[in-house]
Design a protein around this nucleic acid. Sequence first.
DNA 1: TAGTACAAGATGAACGCTCAACCATTCCGG
DNA 2: CCGGAATGGTTGAGCGTTCATCTTGTACTA
Lengths: 172, 172
Amino acid sequence: MEHTRWLDEDEQQTWRAFLAAQRLVSDKVERRLQAAAGMPQAYYEILARLSEAPDRTLRMSVLAESALSSRSRVSHAVARMEESGWIVRRSCPTDRRGQLAELTDEGLRVLEAAVPDHVESVREAVFDGLTRDQQAALREAMEAIVAHLSERPGWPVTGDSGPDGPDAARAS
Amino acid sequence: MEHTRWLDEDEQQTWRAFLAAQRLVSDKVERRLQAAAGMPQAYYEILARLSEAPDRTLRMSVLAESALSSRSRVSHAVARMEESGWIVRRSCPTDRRGQLAELTDEGLRVLEAAVPDHVESVREAVFDGLTRDQQAALREAMEAIVAHLSERPGWPVTGDSGPDGPDAARAS
DNA sequence: TAGTACAAGATGAACGCTCAACCATTCCGG
DNA sequence: CCGGAATGGTTGAGCGTTCATCTTGTACTA
């Protein structure tokens, strides 16, 4: 690493707008979801993915990936939601390491009760402020970023620093 | 509230892309800042605002607003950074309720040491994935969202639920 | 000049997330 | 078929954020 590729004026403004929009939107959405349904966005995401899955069941690792969460996060979250009775865990028949997370009826009810207000808050936070063209452009840009970040992302996408420490036994 | 204004297919995809890009970008940037400088993004933001202010000094509330943080967050964060010797707090001469936060020389050094790698990570996460046109469009959309969210935002922008609880003594 | 409303900050508990370990199981090369 | 590496998932400590509350100080109004 030698010299920094600084941001020009335009890029600075773009980055600031990105940051601001990001914070404003997720604050608003998160806060409202918390108030209305008593759960953070990450939990909602998990419940949503499960509800779309066959048998409302997913392996923990698949769940983590599809909800863009680290394994650790999902593990904690599912444990918590199991206590609430929204999810049950069973061990996977074909791979004895694996765990299956299944959405319970109760969990589905809670999710469905949360959806309408959540959707409304997303609309207010994002779409009510955009023209149709702006929305299309936003989508294109976001998808480009995601695509760029999903190929060879420096170190793994999901984080979680690997099974052992940063460099354990990895020599030779 | 009667019927929900659901998201159509296009809006769904836009929202998912927004969420994904948001998570991917802030994960990457946050993680790298933490690794390289040992501070979260929110702290960086605070230090950055202070460094741009006259006398590297800002009132807590102004600092909170300009860093898009809640008062409470800034209070905790500044307390922590004061222990690290990056910031000092003085009471405000003109308003004895107020506190002034000033960036120390040490704090400025730490910030400046953190900047280059942070900027690089932002470039990699965002700008390397976008054409110039996409970047301009992204900026426009983000600014539209921010503008929309900054006027009459339902309840106050910064959060923090007000001086007293949700409805304390407020009756008649 | 009270008295009441409001603003600025601080604070502690609750909570979710991350990081670094750790155990169990499966995969794979010799 | 054995032994090391990789995979799947969990766990606990540490930390930052939020929420509700409190204290102190200012502003407004009667």
